[in-house]
Each structure stands twice: as C-alpha cells, then as structure tokens.
C-alpha cells in the first residue's frame, strides 16, 4: 500500500481531470457517428448519468479507502467531485436539449415525474458543492465548508434513487448502485452523522 500511495502521490491532479474528462467528447463522438446504437440520445443520456454515479461512488469511497485499507486518494478527491458534477450537468443537458427539447415540457416533467424530481433535487444539492470546490471557498468557509459538503450524502442517495426509480420493472443494476452508495454512507455512520454537531475527525 505504501508503494501504491507513493506512486499515486506522483500523479498530477491535472492528469486525473484530463482522464476523467476524456469520455465526454468520446461518447459524444460515438453518438454522432452511430457508435451508441440507433437511438443515441437516450444512450448518451444514460452513459453520462452512469458515469456521474460511478464518479460519485469513487468520491464517496475516498475516505473509507484511506481509513480501512490505507489507500490515499485524498489528493484527487476534489477532481473526482468536480468531474462528478460535470457529468451530472452533461446528463442534464442531453436530457434538456436533445431529449425533451420543449421548454414547457421540461418543467412539467420535473414536477410530474417523481424520478425526475428526485434527480433534479440531487443536482440542486450538488450546485453549492461545485461552486465551493476551490481553495478560496475552503479558507473562507472554514469549518462550515465541511458541513456544507455533507450535502453530498443526500445528493448521492437521491442520485441512486433516481436510477432505481426510472428503471422499468425490477432491474438489478440500479439497485446495485444504490446499495453501494448506501454502503459507503453506512461506513461513515459510527463516526459521523448528517445532523450531529459532533466534531469530525475526518469526513466527506
């Protein structure tokens, strides 16, 4: 683990941003050229949404990975978080611009379709996190920054729930995502809680 951590320490953060950003233009290219099948709009929407969930899970795993197996990804956590938000935005944009298209329909969908309401709530919760993902905000907000960033917990649950709810019938994959997210949150339970005011040794 020590050597692994040493190797990780040598990887620059920009490399993680770059690697994480690559799937976006690649998937878009595939969508334009037929690589995503005969219905690329839904496929692209799904790919971006699934990537966002995967990055969300990776971000939530940083703390438990360090605590339980000593793997240190802390240096990349902000990059993972910012990338998560970027894919949520892309997912949302594909839905708005390519999928639904009609402005009047968008609001109706947000209000009327519970899985969209839940997804939008997750997105809204993530906005302040993305806005404050910079050193200035961390300094400025001090201990409040940490408290604010606990919003990622409800956002993650809502994101996982969004996927479970939109699936037709009982589908196993979305349930697995939700279980992993729940598991990663449960790992934090003994030492942290969303509403407790107890001092956090280490959280997020």
């Amino acid at each position: 683990m020590q050597t692994l951590n040493q190797i990780l320490r040598r990887i620059p953060v920009w490399a993680v941003y770059l690697l994480g950003a690559l799937p976006a233009p690649w998937l878009f290219y595939l969508g334009v050229t037929g690589g995503l099948g005969v219905e690329p709009i839904k496929a692209l929407e799904h790919e971006f949404g699934e990537l966002a969930l995967q990055l969300l899970i990776l971000g939530l795993a940083v703390t438990p990975l360090r605590r339980f197996i000593g793997l240190n990804l802390m240096k990349f956590r902000r990059a993972i978080g910012v990338l998560t938000f970027a894919y949520v935005v892309l997912h949302l944009l594909v839905w708005l611009v390519l999928d639904v298209q009609l402005l009047s329909q968008i609001w109706a969908d947000i209000v009327k379709r519970p899985y969209i309401t839940v997804g939008m709530a997750a997105f809204v919760l993530m906005i302040p996190l993305a806005v404050t993902s910079n050193n200035w905000s961390v300094r400025r907000l001090g201990p409040r920054w940490r408290k604010l960033h606990r919003l990622v917990y409800p956002a993650a649950i809502l994101g996982g729930l969004h996927y479970v709810m939109l699936a037709k019938g009982f589908q196993i994959e979305p349930v697995i995502y939700l279980l992993i997210i729940s598991g990663l949150l449960l790992l934090r339970l003994p030492i942290s809680g969303l509403l407790t005011r107890s001092r956090q040794a280490d959280s997020a």
């Binding site: 690329p40 709009i41 692209l44 390519l98 298209q101 009609l102």
Partner: peptide, 11 residues
C-alpha cells in the same frame, strides 16, 4: 421520437 434520426432527432 422516431428511431433513426440520430443525436439531433426532433420529437
């Protein structure tokens, strides 16, 4: 949406 309209298919 008619299948076959690609990434920019109109509804």
């Amino acid at each position: 949406r008619r299948i076959g309209g690609g990434l920019f298919a109109k509804r």
